[in-house]
Amino acid sequence: MLKNKLNGLRRSPKGLVVILFAGLLVVGTGYTAVNAAVNTSPQAASHSAAQINYGKKLFLSNCASCHGKNAEGTANGPTLIGVGEASVDFQVSTGRMPGASSGPQMQVKPVQFTNDEIAAMAAFVGSLATGPAIPGAEYTSGNGDIQKGGELFRVNCAMCHNAAGKGGALTEGKYAPELMHSSAKTIAEAMILGPQNMPVFNDANITPQEKNDIITYLQYLQTHSSAGGDELGGLGPVTEGLLAWLGLLGLIIAITIWLGAKSN
């Protein structure tokens, strides 16, 4: 009876959460574990030992100086135990890692590794402890409900990333990046992980289907230019005001000078 009920729950994502949460409470692990638990899947199994070893080598030569030889973390970088494959993939494939300067936040830079190398490092970090996996097609297929996606984007994302996905300012020099060049996978990973100052949007808050809706909407924005002409950076009234003064009024003043000058 109970087993049936549990099976039923397991089929829905919400149910999965309940079960996992209940289980974790029994074990008595802390909240960090809960965080990881929400979208965990067994990872190590799918990777060959050779790949993990290769990843370890890359890790030791490129990451260990800040994150520690065993990814336990140092004063310069947090521990990577339990951050999951998704985190490695997000940070490295957007060029944020390896980090360069110690600014308010990690910058997007040219990517330093090949896809194979990134996958190997992700596999290695994933093998250390369970953590969020790289999101699959259920998140990133881009065939979701575009209207719901827009609605969810405005409620959950637009305040930082701007309604048109052009990014915006946070406090003390931090900022929310623009999303017009982000891949579906990157966006999904960001929502799952909540990298740096971004909050986490776990699958209980925004379901995988809803994440796919948001990605679908963003892909629409990425592929459709404005019907009205050049978007002026999509930044709203400020750039519009600048163009009104410098472009529109400026052009007209140039004409008035021609108009007022004597003809020869």
Partner: peptide, 21 residues
């Protein structure tokens, strides 16, 4: 409940660092 669809929220669904509207 979640904005905008009005589905109720359980405490267990809120992981540390997450934000619900």
């Amino acid at each position: 409940a979640r904005d905008p669809y009005g589905t109720p929220i359980k405490a267990s669904e809120i992981t540390e660092g997450s934000v619900f509207h």
